[in-house]
């Protein structure tokens, strides 16, 4: 643990370099993950629909996403004439940044090299992921497009509503482990009674996974970009690399949310025989697969049903779960 001492020391040139290097490596890593998450999504959904998915670019279509991203990057950067130009330009960046920043607290493996073992990891994640909403609403507003506006408004309502049950279901885990530090939460799952929190917190996990799907704007909660209603929702007017930013943010969140679920409920890097990072990768992939699987199956829920489901069902249940956990933890 010698090399993490810079976390606690005052800032110096060397620690800054370390941090910058770490951030760049994580960024490179996450870009690779997103590239192949998209590839994986297209393949999995393709297989589920009797298709073969991308198979043209490179062997087995492995370079398909890279080609797509390159195409997006060299496209003309179109800004609609009636758009609020400054807002329109910065909105995708605002949406993307928090998605990347939340990765700072995700413990990828036991020797979490570039992970800040922050004492408020859970709060940090929730707080930052909420920032993305601003980027989305801003993008919808600045486009000066009715579809985009409705998409942006929908996503604001949706993300705010689902942030609450998401946070409350996570708090139950925090209660159990007695820490907000994601690393300590993983380590707490090693202690007695040697079970991942999915077992005692199964109820909370269901709430978490529903809210997480909604938070990620994925089917069946993909209303903000509901294609059949709103064309493309808040990014209707976006193209080129700004569009890529939104997509990137979306898929980074898929990864981040899967990583969070793994950490909170499935013991993070814990697991027998295999190295920690591999366990982590397997668990995260399983979550990502689950999101894609749901996407291939479910129709889309309706806006009003979505909101009333959150406020009338999920939040009371999450509260109940939280109180029950607290009571049990006090008694035991």
């Amino acid at each position: 643990m010698e090399m993490f001492t810079w976390l606690d020391k005052p800032m110096s040139g060397m620690t800054f370099l370390n941090m910058a290097l770490g951030a760049v490596i994580v960024l490179g890593f996450i870009l690779g993950v997103v590239t192949y998450t998209i590839y994986f999504e297209r393949k999995v959904i393709g297989w589920m629909q009797w298709r073969i998915g991308p198979n043209r670019v490179g062997p087995l279509g492995l370079f398909q996403t890279i080609a797509d991203v390159l195409k997006l990057l060299i496209k003309e950067d179109i800004v609609p004439a009636k758009a609020d130009r400054t807002m329109f330009l910065i909105a995708p960046i605002i949406a993307f940044f928090p998605s990347f920043m939340v990765l700072a607290v995700i413990p990828f493996s036991a020797t979490h090299i570039f992970t800040a073992a922050s004492n408020v990891g859970v709060i940090y994640y929730i707080a930052l992921s909420a920032l993305t909403i601003i980027g989305v609403v801003l993008g919808g507003w600045a486009s000066n497009n009715k579809y985009a506006l409705i998409g942006g408004m929908r996503s604001a309502a949706q993300m705010i509503s689902y942030e609450v049950p998401l946070a409350m279901s996570l708090l139950a885990v925090v209660l159990m482990s007695g820490s907000m530090n994601l690393v300590e939460i993983v380590e707490a799952q090693k202690n007695f009674p040697y079970v991942w929190y999915i077992v005692p917190q199964f109820f909370g996990f269901i709430i978490f996974i529903i809210s997480a799907t909604a938070e990620l704007n994925r089917t069946p909660f993909d209303l903000p970009e509901a294609e059949s209603e709103l064309v493309a929702g808040y990014f209707t007017e976006y193209s080129g690399f700004r569009f890529a930013f939104y997509m990137l943010a979306e898929y980074v969140y898929v990864f981040a949310m899967s990583a969070l679920a793994t950490t909170m409920y499935f013991g993070g890097w814990e697991g027998p025989f295999l190295p920690g990072w591999l366990w982590f990768a397997i668990k995260v992939s399983a979550f990502i697969f689950f999101f894609f699987w749901v996407r291939a199956t479910m129709p889309r829920i309706r806006t009003d049903q979505l909101l009333s489901f959150s406020w009338k069902v999920l939040i009371p249940l999450a509260l109940l779960n939280l109180v029950a956990t607290a009571v049990v933890m006090t008694l035991v």
Binding site: I45, Q49, P220, A226, P299, R300
Partner: peptide, 16 residues
């Protein structure tokens, strides 16, 4: 209809 409602797999199954 299912595609309109957001589920895309039925569309491909029936087209097959």
């Amino acid at each position: 209809y299912l595609l309109d409602l957001g589920a895309m797999s039925p569309f491909l199954y029936v087209f097959a």
